[in-house]
Design a protein around this nucleic acid. Structure first.
Lengths: 184, 184
DNA sequence: AAAATATGTCAATATGGCTGACATAAATGT
DNA sequence: ACATTTATGTCAGCCATATTGACATATTTT
């Protein structure tokens, strides 16, 4: 899909091969390459799961819910809302579908009985792992191409791209989830 | 926005600090960290432009159109459809708004008069550069933190994440666009 | 007892995708 | 010359996912 082949022989003539002198770093230089590579990389990255999900009549919203609930068993609804950055009304519909179809369960909190803590069912975990497997395959393919150090470099780059005031929270979340899944 | 602070003191006890032994690379290991970092990094990356756009009653769809038209002046509608991976009906609505509001113009192709080649207006370019500037600021902040070599490493990683059969096309597109903008 | 919190729900609305069908103009092939 | 294909646009309707605002319920906190 999506053969990219722009061939604009336009009015504006290609006036010689202007190309910037190599190694140039003008003050307000725009990093077009990274902007566009991020766009295409992310598009393909979410494309793999999307194909599987569409067969189940699920969308990307369902994927996000399933992913984070699987990674953080027992999380509160409010936590999920914060991570996904959506309203509870939006989450409501998607979450209800996943509960109705047996991918997620909600349990009353032990300490605070107002809470509906979220867990994936075995069926939910199977799907979550399948989707993560697809994404992992792509990532590992990339790392294999790039050689050792690529994983660490990617981790550092992506971390540095996150809002500075959120960064610590994200890293904590990832570390917590690793522990949570490690014991299963 | 979005304080992340998951605090599931759940039924399932955190059984010690299980954490995987460092430097581990089990066979079917899932790269959760990259999966989640990509999610959060991309979320923040598109968040900056989104804020500006929402004030103009534009969405991410408008951003994508403006971005690629600005980068590839004189591109065909069909090229844009391929890149964005959407239907012409979807593009139609968004494109019409941008034309009506004077951000984009369409010119009849010189060789093939069926074509409606796309160009940004000066007004459109101002907006495109403003949005790209926000994203560049984030990227450069990251590179500044990470030190030399970070740009190259990021480029290599993101490139390797793109579908192999699309990769060449994407790289050509980026190179072409660099030349196209260099002469303006 | 009052207030705050966690969650859920009803209703209305917007955006940005989609499909299918059809229209027009221009280029291309026979 | 005529038929076909191509590039684009448009009408109409549908769906998924997001929004806001208002309100309900149960439970915890003060």
């Amino acid at each position: 899909m999506a053969d990219i082949n722009v061939n604009a022989k336009t009015a504006t003539p290609v006036s010689g091969l202007a190309g910037r002198p190599a190694g140039d770093s003008a003050p307000a230089e725009l990093t077009w390459d990274i902007i566009e590579l991020l766009f295409f990389a992310y598009r393909d990255f979410v494309g793999d799961p999307d194909e599987v999900l569409s067969k189940l009549a699920f969308g990307r919203a369902h994927h996000r819910v399933l992913h984070f609930v699987n990674r953080n068993p027992g999380m509160k609804v409010a936590d999920l809302l914060d991570i996904l950055n959506i309203t509870k009304q939006s989450l409501g519909r998607v979450l209800k579908q996943m509960v109705d179809q047996g991918y997620v369960v909600q349990k009353e909190g032990a300490q605070d009985r107002r809470q509906r803590l979220l867990y994936v069912t075995p069926k939910g975990e199977v799907l979550a792992l399948k989707l993560a497997g697809l994404q992992t395959a792509r990532i590992n393919r990339a790392f294999a191409e790039l050689g050792p150090g690529a994983h660490e470099a990617a981790r550092r780059f992506l971390t540095a791209m996150i809002d500075i005031d959120n960064r610590e929270g994200v890293l904590r979340l990832i570390a917590r989830a690793d522990r949570a899944k490690a014991r299963s």
